[in-house]
Design a protein around this nucleic acid. Structure first.
Lengths: 344, 344
DNA sequence: CGTCAACATGACAACGTTGACTAGTTCACC
DNA sequence: GGTGAACTAGTCAACGTTGTCATGTTGACG
């Protein structure tokens, strides 16, 4: 009833401990017939290798850490789900590690984490993943990790990463707005330390430039990825002299704030002002009207990051076609009612 | 530079391995002078016991699982943070386990989890924690766990738990509405399998009864803990013949949906209809107007649950005043603008 | 048919920790 | 001063797995 060990498997399969071990780790030097016997015994006993023992014994480890410093719970939960799914498939265990980049020495903290918890590697989510000071230091210390970052192409540098092409997606959103006839489109930035903010801005700028629409400095406002920040900046913009006909918020929270601002000023959305967000969060669906946005499948991205980490760590472990190292993800435009009117 | 082991500590402290082990597990049979020497050596080497080895060797384990089946990311992240903080203080590692109560045999799934990951116990969050079929079966299998549940008093039964007195808090919210002059207060329920829904309704009903306000069946609507469900039910209510003057949503999402419904019908909040929610989620803060709600400190609750689990598991591990087994939490009324007007 | 490489399997120690048991030390009390 | 309980500390094996090395088995080729 309790735990079946490698010993039990060996007895049932009538081979030695070591042979079972070999099968589990799919080492090549096992005869096919033997391998089959062992696999049947494993099946029969519902054997699963013991993580503690594995981690203890070898240089290898079957545990990874997920590091994040992201205030958005929707994002965090999706990333967790994705990584966890990959962990289950690959037989790894996951140690979550929310942290605060502001306090203390993150590099030290993560090094300790890896050492004390015997982690094989880390999956690092933005924005920490985009802080070169941190990632460089981790690299120097010989810690294995995969980053999830925002970039328009695979970043240079040795450390493997999965990148989200926010720029291309933001281009699509801005393009959509321009095609609706808008030529005065405000852009509300997120925190500077999130690369996604800068990338999305570049996509926005590129779309305007390609259409010959001037980028006006007074229509690009700094701030943070929050409802309040969106509300405040939109209020300022919409009660100013030259009101934009569209507002592109760097994420849905900002856009939701902008929407609330527009409403509180008695403006009609999308009639008086169109609003678009980014991320396809619940905010965008639940808003009245629902917000045009860009959908990123965070779970898939995170899962892929984990796969990538393991394929770096132990290439032979990736048996199947898991080896397709897809590393670029482009969020998809989702047009909703908040931009569904021709600009006047 | 790498990992210090118990052996290193023993060498530095000039004692045997076993004595160091004793100090770590604060067993009583160590002379004070020796203990001090060892502690100093531990300090000096920045020694931390190896989880893998500990788990492997003994019957004991220093890993716990956090089980949840809750769709609300804000809730999930807060629970994680709380449990994780307790884990750090107590030297445990955490294995998160989101699951889907619908699919498959949860009891089997959790049993396997505990066995395969050598977990000492589980912290179970609602709503699974409130499914007696599941918890009874786990108890029978000898699995240790602590539940976080919604109840107005410590539930009977052997398994330890931390309970949130939603009833008392909902009473306070309803009482607040009545004191504002409302006598036709609608109540929008959440999913039935969340006890919190039933508990909050009981608090609402008690408040009405104590004030001699009749509870009208047509003002109590079933549904789910979601924005959409709130929107739909509130739309029906507010466009009906006898419009309530206040709506109490079973959580903030429902309330936010109700708020959106009221606005879309051209009603003024709180002038035409007051709206209150529950949980003090970001929805309630960001709404226009901000929603009156009840704040539960989910993190504290989760942390306490973890503490309780460990104190069951190994009483002697709780050295300090950690032994205060606080297990009741009462969310606190937070009055905001959405109810800040006298009923007409 | 003998030889050697290539392949397939096994024996054994070790990872870091703790449980069971043993041995030495202290101290109260007859 | 002797006795044994109570206290303190140490030795050794074991947890489940894998790395190292040794051994056994096959088959190709001269």
């Amino acid at each position: 009833m309790s735990k079946a060990t490698i010993k039990d498997v060996a007895r049932v399969a009538e081979v030695s401990l070591k042979t079972v071990s070999r099968v589990i780790n799919n080492e090549p030097t096992v005869k096919e017939a033997t391998r089959k016997k062992v696999l049947e015994a494993i099946e029969e006993l519902r054997y699963q290798p013991d993580m503690s023992a594995r981690n203890l014994r070898g240089n290898k480890s079957y545990a990874v850490g997920l590091v994040y410093d992201n205030p958005n719970p929707y994002y965090v939960v999706d990333v967790q789900e994705g990584v966890l799914q990959a962990c289950r498939e690959l037989g790894y265990s996951l140690q979550i590690h929310p942290c605060d980049a502001e306090t203390g020495d993150i590099v030290e903290e993560l090094s300790d984490l890896v050492r004390n918890s015997r982690l094989a590697g880390l999956v690092i989510a933005p924005p920490i993943s985009e802080d070169d000071r941190v990632t460089d230091a981790l690299y120097e210390r010989g810690i294995h990790f995969v980053r999830i970052v925002s970039a328009s192409s695979a970043p240079a540098g040795a450390s493997p990463c999965v990148y989200v092409n926010d720029r291309a997606a933001a281009f699509a959103v801005a393009d959509h707005l321009i095609n609706k006839g808008h030529s005065n489109i405000a852009f509300l930035l997120g925190e500077e330390e999130h690369h996604s903010s800068g990338e999305r801005f570049k996509g926005y700028r590129k779309a305007l430039e390609e259409h010959g629409v001037p980028v006006r400095d007074d229509m690009v406002l700094e701030g943070s990825y929050s409802f309040d920040s969106g509300f405040q900046r939109a209020t300022a913009l919409l009660s100013g002299d030259t009101r934009p006909t569209a507002i592109f918020g760097c994420n849905d929270e900002i856009a939701a704030g902008a929407l609330a601002a527009a409403k509180s000023l008695g403006l009609n959305v999308p009639g008086d002002v169109a609003i678009a967000g980014f991320e396809n969060s619940p905010f965008s669906k639940q808003a009245q009207p629902p917000l045009t946005t860009a959908a990123q499948s965070i779970g898939d991205i995170a899962k892929q990051a984990m796969m990538l980490l393991v394929s770096e760590l132990r290439p032979q472990a990736m048996t199947d076609g898991n080896n397709d190292r897809k590393s670029e993800f482009i969020p998809e435009l989702i047009a909703r009612a908040s931009t569904d009117a021709e600009a006047r």
